[in-house]
Design a binder for these strands. Structure first.
Lengths: 150, 150
DNA sequence: GAATAATATATGTATATACATGCATTATTG
DNA sequence: CAATAATGCATGTATATACATATATTATTC
């Protein structure tokens, strides 16, 4: 659906004003779709992201700070997300022997199993989210890579 | 910053998988920037959006459902957002005479004044968010318009 | 090496979303 | 027109963010 129809608005002052809304609108729908897939597996997008990050290092443990740095949406909330993952026995939490301020987290076998079940479903969903050609998607990625300054 | 650097990840399986993350990452930063601007005026992005929607119809009242339909991120939370705007005396809430199930909301003068103060600052921020040329931004908008199916 | 600063995590509060549910009112149906 | 369904809003719960603050531990500085 075209943006203007979806939010029942029109007449952005210029393309930059429109882009801001367009990016947020598109992201909202992408995230909604991901949430629906994850819901069948009892995960929120945030919980999934933490599991995914842990899997990237597994079997090496990661501390809370390292996880936070790798999140798409930086979060001060990692301890509480880990709380919920721990309750579901998807991760294990323990104190670091090296720096005792750090809490280190390891992916549990149940977490690995869950990721292996979710990941192919999620990838299929991602592949199906858009009808655009590979070339157009590549161009979209290039423009997004350049969109934010610095 | 390039996406892969920012989230310290690399090797997306394909461009579609990357686009999903890229869109959410970009939107997160856009929204963060907007939040910072609005914070100086005591508003959250959600509260601002409700005010903006009300202004689009002002001085005509809108019911909760009409507001929800125009939000970028559909929300079941409009009554509570209106609670907070009402506490700040930015809007007025009353019961509809026509359909007594409906709660109708009007923008108060303080809300109009606040929008008139915020809007130019927000527009400047939107214009400055990216260095890209007008042509590139236009292309980004076209691709985003086509990204989501239907 | 004691005092201070910095760091890592946890936690409290306000606000938000998603979802389920409840209540009042309006519309529909038989 | 009485019974039922649908609608509009409000509210409760779990989870999330942003921000402020607390606590424990480590690093730095004098």
């Amino acid at each position: 659906m075209k943006l203007e129809t979806a939010i029942q608005s029109s007449g952005f002052k210029n393309e930059k004003q429109k882009a801001v809304v367009n990016i947020m609108y598109t992201a909202y729908h992408v995230k909604s779709r991901i949430s629906m897939v994850l819901k069948d597996y009892g995960l929120t997008p945030e919980q999934y992201n933490v599991l995914r990050i842990l899997k990237g290092k597994h079997p090496v443990q990661m501390c809370v700070k390292d996880i936070a740095e790798r999140l798409i949406e930086r979060s001060s909330n990692v301890p509480r997300i880990v709380d919920r993952l721990e309750l579901k026995k998807l991760v294990k939490r323990s104190q670091s022997g090296i720096d005792r301020r750090e809490t280190v987290i390891t992916l549990a076998q149940a977490g690995i199993n869950l990721l292996e079940a979710v990941n192919p479903v999620l990838e299929t969903s991602h592949d199906q989210i858009s009808d655009m050609s590979e070339a157009d998607i590549r161009q979209l990625n290039e423009l997004l890579d350049r969109y934010l300054k610095e």
